[in-house]
Simulated scan of single mutants.
Amino acid sequence: MSLQFSVLASGSTGNAIYVEADGQSFLVDAGLSNKQLGLLMAKIGKSMDDLSGIFVTHEHSDHIKGLGVAARKHKVPIYANAKTWNAMDTLTGEIPADQKFHFETDTVKTFGGLDIQSFGVSHDAAEPMFYVFHHNGRKLALITDTGYVSDRMKGMIRDANAFVFESNHDVSMLRMGHYPWSIKRRILSDVGHVSNEDAALAMSDVIGDQTSRIYLAHLSRDNNMKDLARMSVQQTLESKGFVIGDTVSLFDTDPINPTPLTAV
Rank of each mutant, 00 (worst) to 15 (best):
residue 122 S to P: 03
residue 97 A to P: 07
residue 185 R to K: 11
residue 8 L to I: 05
residue 50 D to G: 11
residue 121 V to R: 00
residue 84 T to G: 08
residue 109 K to A: 07
residue 245 G to T: 06
residue 192 G to Q: 01
residue 86 N to V: 15
residue 183 I to Y: 10
residue 174 L to E: 05
residue 235 Q to D: 14
residue 161 N to A: 08
residue 68 G to C: 06
residue 48 M to H: 05
residue 262 T to L: 11
residue 81 N to R: 04
residue 236 T to N: 07
residue 145 D to I: 12
residue 218 H to W: 09
residue 126 A to S: 12
residue 108 V to F: 13
residue 51 L to W: 11
residue 75 K to V: 04
residue 206 V to N: 01
residue 136 N to V: 08
residue 80 A to F: 14
residue 149 V to C: 04
residue 11 G to A: 08
residue 35 K to H: 14
residue 139 K to P: 08
residue 262 T to D: 01
residue 220 S to W: 01
residue 210 Q to P: 02
residue 117 Q to P: 05
residue 129 M to S: 00
residue 101 F to V: 09
residue 174 L to N: 01
residue 195 S to G: 05
residue 89 D to Y: 12
residue 15 N to I: 11
residue 258 P to C: 08
residue 172 S to F: 13
residue 262 T to F: 09
residue 48 M to P: 05
residue 174 L to S: 03
residue 184 K to D: 00
residue 162 A to T: 15
residue 105 T to A: 11
residue 226 K to Y: 06
residue 248 V to P: 02
residue 192 G to D: 00
residue 19 V to G: 06
residue 196 N to D: 14
residue 194 V to D: 02
residue 151 D to V: 10
residue 230 R to A: 11
residue 214 I to T: 07
residue 76 V to Q: 10
residue 124 D to R: 05
residue 251 F to N: 05
residue 26 F to K: 07
residue 66 G to T: 12
residue 145 D to R: 06
residue 188 L to H: 09
residue 176 M to V: 03
residue 77 P to Y: 12
residue 254 D to N: 13
residue 65 K to M: 14
residue 119 F to Y: 14
residue 123 H to W: 09
residue 103 F to P: 02
residue 200 A to D: 01
residue 40 L to P: 00
residue 76 V to S: 06
residue 252 D to E: 06
residue 41 M to T: 07
residue 65 K to R: 14
residue 20 E to G: 06
residue 106 D to Y: 15
residue 2 S to T: 13
residue 11 G to P: 07
residue 178 H to F: 14
residue 227 D to P: 03
residue 129 M to L: 04
residue 189 S to N: 00
residue 230 R to F: 10
residue 85 W to C: 06
residue 102 H to K: 12
residue 45 G to A: 14
residue 30 A to S: 09
residue 199 A to G: 15
residue 49 D to H: 07
residue 126 A to D: 15
residue 78 I to M: 11
residue 74 H to D: 12
residue 72 R to N: 11
residue 244 I to Y: 14
residue 210 Q to H: 13
residue 157 I to A: 10
residue 216 L to G: 03
residue 240 K to G: 01
residue 49 D to F: 06
residue 21 A to H: 05
